[in-house]
């Protein structure tokens, strides 16, 4: 177990090193320098800027400097708004994005598990079909269409939810977060629902469910003790992919709903080619994801006694 965790941590560091290196190389392979697109800057200002961002030094030296800073958690300064460091942008945006993301994950997993469960129990009946249609819609209507449509109808025309402002930080008022959270949760919700349904159907057909019934346990007990527990296990495995999904989804949703999270900064930084922010966000999110995957694996090992973490892949 300890050995396994050690191995995983090494893998994690390698991944992070890889992604930062790749990001660095990619960002510095863009022809010209980041200021070339700007209106003609005076020669002197340009020199000063380049010195400030270490762009006047040879690339290997820049790389070493960048990695050094990275190791201390310093992601550099935004190129387009030099008054702000990338760290500032991230720490301002993160609570907002975290709130939005967490709400979406909670909605997706709870509603998804329940919907999948109901669909499985009512297999091939109208309820099942309706739920599956909803799930398929979630998979096939992109959230950048869904978001604006929800905004237009639920927000502006029927005025069910306010769409005005998010407020700031983690503690935004709940009603402002409802629409974006739902819009963001739609695709992961569909994924969880489908997975839960098939996993549940699989478990319902297992011999051990028959054994449980043969013991005389009433349906509700069979369900809660044997069916549900086993059916939920696979859902844990897609928490990783779902997080990725929510993450990239948040770029869209934050932009559309003007939510001041990391995603919005990221999208803005893409459109005005703010390389240091792009790099910073990429590395930050990669770190987050890699750790998330690690946690999910550990969690999986905990809830499924059959999984021996670190055991060699057998047969």
């Amino acid at each position: 177990m300890a050995r396994y965790i050690g191995q995983r941590l090494i893998l994690l560091l390698v991944t992070l090193w890889l992604i930062s290196t790749v990001t660095f190389v990619l960002m510095h392979s863009i022809p010209g320098d980041p200021f070339s697109s700007e209106k003609k800057l005076p020669e002197q200002t340009l020199r000063a800027l380049e010195a400030k961002y270490n762009l006047d030094k040879p690339l290997p030296q820049q790389y070493v400097l960048y990695m050094k800073n990275l190791a201390t958690g310093d992601l550099g300064i935004s190129i387009k708004t030099p008054s702000r460091s990338v760290n500032e942008i991230l720490s301002a945006g993160f609570p907002v994005s975290a709130r939005l993301g967490l709400q979406a994950i909670v909605i997706a997993s709870f509603a998804g598990v329940i919907m999948g469960m109901i669909a499985a129990i009512r297999q091939n009946r109208p309820t099942d079909y309706i739920l599956m249609v909803v799930a398929v819609l979630g998979l096939s209507v992109p959230n950048f269409v869904l978001g604006p449509l929800m905004q237009k109808y639920l927000g502006l025309e029927w005025e069910i939810f306010p769409i005005a402002s998010w407020g700031d930080g983690f503690g935004s008022e709940f009603q402002y977060t409802v629409l974006p959270s739902i819009a963001l949760s739609f695709l992961p919700l569909a994924l969880v629902t489908r997975l839960m349904r098939s996993s549940m159907l699989d478990v319902l057909g297992q011999d051990y469910i028959r054994t449980a019934r043969a013991k005389g346990l009433p349906p509700l007990k069979v369900f809660s003790r044997h069916t549900l527990r086993n059916a939920i296990i696979p859902v844990v495995t897609i928490l990783g992919p779902i997080t990725i999904n929510i993450l990239t989804g948040s770029f869209v949703i934050e932009k559309i709903f003007s939510i001041p999270g990391i995603g919005k900064y990221f999208v803005d930084s893409i459109s005005n080619r703010d390389y240091s922010v792009i790099m910073g966000v990429t590395i930050f999110y990669s770190a987050l994801l890699v750790m998330m995957n690690f946690v999910v694996d550990l969690l999986y090992g905990l809830i499924d006694p059959r999984i021996k973490l670190g055991a060699k892949e057998g047969n």
Binding site: V14, L26, T248, I270, R273
Partner: peptide
């Protein structure tokens, strides 16, 4: 593959396209 697997797919794609 394991190492690459840990990378966030769409972020890498975005990065590549920016470049």
């Amino acid at each position: 593959v394991d190492v690459l697997w840990g990378l966030p797919y769409l972020l890498v794609v975005i990065l590549l396209l920016v470049v």
